[in-house]
Write a protein that binds this DNA or RNA. Structure first.
Length: 314
DNA sequence: TTGTGTTTTATTGCCTCC
DNA sequence: GGAGGCAATAAAACACAA
């Protein structure tokens, strides 16, 4: 098909022939030139020919005459219009509007509709088909841009959520460290104090397993919970329903989903083995922390898709 | 006016479907 | 195998700043 393609004047002449005799009907510019003298419709592109058709069909009304001022102001310009060398011409505003409306109805073109549109607009059916083809391509590009924007904003939202969770994690880590230190301090005081034990300290004096067993057997889990609250209430707002953390949809949804333990999971990688033992004996059993590895807090993936999957894995 | 970027029209080659 | 669709591309037409 290279013979009927290519650029420049010859190519346009070939197009001219094609419009009358089908694809690649003429390979010689001379033939086109010869044919151009046989019919007024060969003066100019297919659009020009169409304009001529419309002009003939509609008399002086010329509904689809292109609206450019310099082409619409007298016989001289009209003469020039018909006698200018072969050029690619744009469809008129009216023609484009008509095609746009048709495209809105259905962006695919059945043969009958193509023929009818071509007839209505005074264009070649092939021109109508090409216009729809190009229009579909433009629509697809626009659609891709829209899809990209939607995905981008969605990703940005998720990224913001992730950043908030990361901050929350750091805050909670610091809190756990603080509480652990407090606990160790009390243990040391208790060792020093010996017999001078307060009731509260007595709780920590007992073997953790026994304290828990006693509490559980007497239905006093709330005691443990209270202890936990005593410790945390003055240092943390993690159970405060009016806390800004709960205003965040992500946090509240996590808790509502019964996944609150995730939020309170201490990062045990920062603790010594002794500290871990202390925590597991005295605090962890009543709170039933799930065992999560530190790798569970790995950095988010770079791409939006991986990021979404990464978030869901929690 | 001119250079340059964008849009529109049209071609080409490949692919799929019937 | 022919028709039609699509992606890539060419080239004319157009818009616009300098």
């Amino acid at each position: 098909m290279a013979a009927c393609g290519g650029g420049g004047f010859n190519s346009n002449l070939s197009v001219l022939i094609q419009s009358q005799r089908g694809p690649c009907a003429a390979s010689q510019p001379l033939e086109a030139f010869f044919l151009s003298g046989t019919s007024p419709t060969f003066l100019g592109s297919r659009s020009v020919m169409s304009f001529a058709d419309v002009h003939q069909a509609n008399g002086s009304t010329r509904p689809f005459l292109r609206s450019y001022d310099h082409e619409d102001n007298g016989d001289d310009d009209l003469d020039e219009y018909f006698h200018q060398p072969e050029k690619k011409r744009r469809l008129t505003v009216d023609q484009v509007q008509f095609l746009e409306k048709s495209f809105e109805v259905e962006n695919k073109l059945e043969p009958e509709r193509k023929t009818q549109l071509a007839k209505d607009l005074g264009l070649q059916p092939r021109q109508v088909a090409i216009w729809f083809q190009n229009r579909r391509a433009r629509w697809k590009t626009k659609q891709l841009e829209k899809d990209y924007e939607v995905l981008e904003s969605s990703y940005n939202g998720l990224k913001a959520d992730y950043d908030n969770l990361l901050k929350e994690k750091e805050r909670l880590k610091a809190e756990v460290t603080l509480l652990t230190n407090e606990l160790l301090l009390k243990e040391k005081e208790k060792e020093k104090g010996g017999s001078e034990l307060s009731d509260k300290d007595a709780f920590f004096q007992e073997p953790p397993g026994k304290a828990m067993a006693d509490s559980a057997s007497e239905g006093e889990v709330s005691t443990v919970a209270c202890k936990q609250e005593d410790i945390s209430s003055d240092k943390s707002d993690m159970f405060d329903s009016e806390s800004p953390h709960y205003a965040d949809g992500v946090h509240s949804s996590l808790l509502e989903a019964g996944d609150s333990s995730y939020v309170f999971q201490p990062d045990q990688s920062d603790l010594s083995q002794d500290e871990e033992d202390n925590l597991s004996k005295s605090l962890l059993p009543p709170l039933v922390f799930p065992k999560l590895e530190d790798d569970d807090y790995s950095d988010p993936p770079a791409s939006f898709e991986d990021h979404a999957i990464w978030c869901w894995s929690y």
